[in-house]
Amino acid sequence: MEARNTIRKRYYFVTGILFLLALGLLLLPHRKNVKELSPEDLLVSISTSDRFYSPENVARLIISGDPSIQLIDVRTAEEFAAYSLPKAINIPLANILDKDKKGNYVWQDVLNQDIKTNIIYSNGTVYANQAWMLISRMNFKNNYVLKGGLNAFFENIIKAKAPLASAPQSEIDLYSFRKAVAMYFGGGGSISTATTDAKSGDGTPVVKKKKEAKSGGGC
């Protein structure tokens, strides 16, 4: 009888522990596992230059109206409002990993996808690279960087220097392509400043779809 009572006591004890563990599981918040890129893989992808799109390539894609690319401007909302590439969306670097109330990444739908190719740009390459590294570490796919950023875009293309008359044909072709691009962006030597009216009041990023760049001239 004594032994039976001890066994009974143990059963009550185990039941109590099980119930507590069960209650714990019920109350614990759901944990989302984010599959981060391993440090080794991240290092490898940083050290290669696979992520870069040259300004010429980006210009070609913009002009051809390639629907598969998505330009992402990681500068601040003010800079974005002052000037941005056509159809770019603004995700400031500081907000790129923002989460909503449920703990999901706000920009995940844009930054992690298999349909479009994201090309990230800032004024130079540094901020765009930082943004690229942050989202690559989250294992988001299909993200690339505009090499040299907007500065290179303007230096190489809009303000393209004419090659010497003795330059090889390929260089002259490249120059004429750059001139054509510059015309498309309404430049031809000067930096155009498209104005946008929308400005976010509270500092939160706003997706702004830019108007198509207007072609110059008319009847």
Binding site: T15, L18, F19, L25, L26
Partner: peptide, 22 residues
């Protein structure tokens, strides 16, 4: 439902079953 909630009910069911076996 969440995995934790399912586990909660499963453990309750298991406790019930343990006592029923006795």
């Amino acid at each position: 439902i969440s995995s934790g909630a399912l586990e909660f009910f499963f453990i309750l069911f298991a406790i019930l079953l343990f006592w029923m076996t006795i």
